[in-house]
Design a protein around this nucleic acid. Structure first.
Lengths: 246, 246
DNA sequence: TCACATTTGTCCGTATGTATC
DNA sequence: AGATACATACGGACAAATGTG
């Protein structure tokens, strides 16, 4: 996978379970194995690859942690192809926050800049179906607000829909990863209805500006919106956060 | 680690190796275990935690892939606390790009936009050490060119160094992931010395503009440079790309 | 250079927990 | 409830790698 990542890693010690994992990964990349499909059981895989069960176990563990498969126990259980990579990325980002490798300030800056770029691209490439999706999203959010319910889920989805409308997978993957982290923060903070209402208002205006192809207006709205979000999150930046045991 | 991540994930039965992994993670978060320190061997950990060696192995595997430790074999080997989490995130982004079948066209567009934003931040946040790293990079590249050797590796590294100079880890991770794929393409295309020379020239000018804090000049140079790269890659945009074997 | 000790990597056999039918 | 199929976990054993004397 990642050879010569650094020049300092000289010898390529190839561990069998990594070979097995890479082989299965390759089958997924090549669409031979598709999401939803079941992999053979550990015992069968061990036999087919001609390795021990322990080796297969560690290969599957690697794939599970890397977000390629999920594993279920019990009858008719076993490994299933399922893409959870973006969740894994946000998990690792959260770990990175904990060991102070990445700060919330860095994240919000990156988010602001990348979303601005994305929005600019959306104006040029947006299709009718995207606008409908966005309008549907804000309509549902507004409905919740009217019933005094916070619309956190919809408000996060708004930004991933926006990234989707850029018709660029790189933008989509990056934005969705970032929003997964933002969502995690928000779930801990627990926004109130008034805040949620404010967010939805911005989203409504942004959708309108996109539909009318008003580029600078849309970008200004987004910037103002995200700056407000950043200010709301600011108090939590340096907050001592003990991990979630339960 | 990740309880109630999504509402749809019903009950997270706790697996023993996850408990072991979480315990060690917590010790790292709490600075009880610091980078560089050695963990006990698998056998010792198994005894101390009162679990089997296989369970410890899977826990260590999880920590390894999550970027908390590295593992070495042989005498005086074993697990060592080492933070490689950002590399792990980059690897996952790389996987995400592959699994989502990101096209070269999407990649070059996103790269152009994101690097422009990054460079803007570089101008504001660059430190002396960054400029020295960049100068060293182009000097080595120039040396290779003078000897009629292509400097692909240095030319890719240039852009990750640039992202590093933005002093924003999120930018760095994203750019590093993108450049990994770009490098993958270039290694297959095999640029000639003349092309490589052209690239190095741009890099030299960009470094100079950064050192002189000439913002618009630097950004214009980068844009022109990346547009030329895009044009060179254009013939390969629709080429069937089988992913990386090794 | 040559053992030697340590530690991970791999395999086997077995037992238990867990989910499905 | 019982049978089945699967992951999870334990213990023992040997092979391979690697630093040390």
């Amino acid at each position: 996978m990642n050879k010569q990542k650094t020049i300092f890693d000289p010898i390529k010690r190839t561990r069998t379970f990594e070979d097995v994992s890479d082989k299965i990964k390759q089958l997924i990349f090549d669409d031979v194995l598709k999401p939803g499909e079941k992999l053979p059981s550990e015992a069968q895989l061990a036999q087919q690859f001609g390795v021990g069960r322990q080796t297969v176990r560690e290969a599957l563990r690697l794939l599970e942690i890397s977000g390629f498969i999920t594993i279920h126990r019990g009858g008719s259980g076993g490994p299933i192809i399922k893409d959870t990579i973006l969740n894994r990325i946000s998990d690792l980002f959260l770990d990175a926050f904990r060991i102070k490798k990445v700060t919330l300030a860095e994240l919000t800056v990156a988010r602001l800049e990348i979303e601005k770029v994305v929005l600019n691209y959306v104006i040029d490439n947006v299709e009718e179906s995207d606008i409908i999706s966005l309008q549907k999203n804000v309509a549902e959010a507004r409905k919740k607000i009217d019933n005094k319910i916070v619309a956190t889920e919809e408000n996060i989805q708004f930004h991933t829909l926006l990234a989707q409308a850029s018709r660029n997978h790189v933008f989509f993957i990056v934005v969705e990863s970032i929003m997964a982290i933002v969502g995690d923060f928000l779930s801990r903070i627990g926004p109130d209805v008034k805040t949620s209402d404010n967010v939805v208002s911005y989203h409504e205006d942004i959708v309108k500006a996109i539909a009318e192809k008003k580029r600078t207006k849309a970008i200004n709205l987004l910037e103002q919106h995200l700056l407000e979000v950043r200010n709301r999150l600011k108090p939590f930046v340096n907050q001592k956060k003990e991990s979630n045991s339960k």
